[in-house]
Simulated assay, not measured.
Amino acid sequence: MSVSLYYSARRAAPLTEVESSAIEGVVAAHSSSFPYADEEGLYLYELPDDGSAERVDGSTKMPSDFDRLMPVVTHVLHSVTELRRVLPDAEWSVHMDDIDIPWDEAEGYDLSRLSDEAENQ
């Protein structure tokens, strides 16, 4: 059984050249520092290059090796946190299959808050 992390941002206005460049910079920086060459890292879907892109969409398949799972999840969530900070005015959705990953303005996306939320329910 495979598990994936999905991330997307939506807004009414198209991405500016500055935003697109910043997104490319985040992707490049995090790709070069990804811990495992044989695992899937931050992956953004190809979107139309016609200036009308109003979104960012991507996903990452999680490793089946438990020892690699947390380093990959942590790295990708840190990457998505940086992407969200490039597009703070977008509506973001980040989830691992059917589990929403909470956002914290100071800390970004982090799985440790899932257990906090479960305890508070």
Rank of each mutant, 00 (worst) to 15 (best):
V80N: 08
L87A: 13
L47H: 06
T81A: 10
V76M: 01
E54D: 14
V86Q: 11
Y36L: 06
F34K: 05
R55L: 13
R55D: 14
A37V: 03
V94Y: 12
F34C: 03
E40K: 07
S59T: 01
R85C: 10
L42Y: 08
V27D: 04
V56M: 10
E40V: 05
A29S: 06
M62P: 03
H30Y: 14
P88S: 15
Y43V: 04
S93H: 10
P63Q: 04
A28N: 04
A28E: 11
S52M: 15
V56T: 11
E39P: 05
V76T: 12
V27M: 09
S79F: 07
D50N: 14
V80M: 00
L47I: 08
T60A: 11
H75D: 04
E91A: 15
D50C: 10
F34L: 02
M62N: 04
G51Y: 14
S52P: 02
K61E: 02
R85L: 09
V76D: 10
D65E: 15
A90H: 12
E82V: 10
D38W: 05
L87M: 13
G58D: 08
E54N: 14
S31V: 00
V56K: 07
D50P: 03
L69T: 08
L42G: 06
L44F: 12
V27A: 00
M70C: 05
S64Y: 01
R68Q: 00
H75L: 04
S64P: 02
L47A: 15
L87I: 13
F34G: 05
E91T: 15
W92D: 13
D89S: 13
A37L: 09
F66T: 01
V86A: 11
S32L: 10
V72L: 02
S64N: 03
V73M: 11
S64W: 08
E39H: 06
H75N: 09
G51A: 14
E39T: 02
H30D: 07
D57P: 04
V27R: 12
Y36H: 13
P71H: 02
E91I: 12
A53E: 12
A90E: 10
D89K: 12
D89Y: 09
S33P: 05
V76R: 02
D67T: 02
E39L: 00
F34A: 05
V73N: 03
F66N: 01
S59R: 00
M62A: 06
R84H: 15
P88V: 12
Y45G: 13
M62K: 00
R55G: 10
P35K: 06
L87T: 14
P88R: 13
D38S: 08
E91G: 07
L83I: 11
S79N: 08
D49A: 13
L44N: 02
V94L: 09
L77W: 09
D65P: 01
V73T: 15
M62Y: 04
D65Y: 00
V56F: 11
T60Y: 01
D57W: 09
R68G: 04
Y36A: 05
A29W: 03
V56H: 08
V73Y: 06
D89P: 00
T81F: 11
D50S: 09
S59N: 12
V94C: 13
V94K: 07
V73R: 01
R68I: 01
P48W: 15
Y36G: 03
E82M: 08
M70V: 01
E46H: 03
Y43I: 05
R84M: 03
S59I: 06
H75V: 01
S93F: 09
V56L: 14
E40C: 07
L44R: 08
M62L: 15
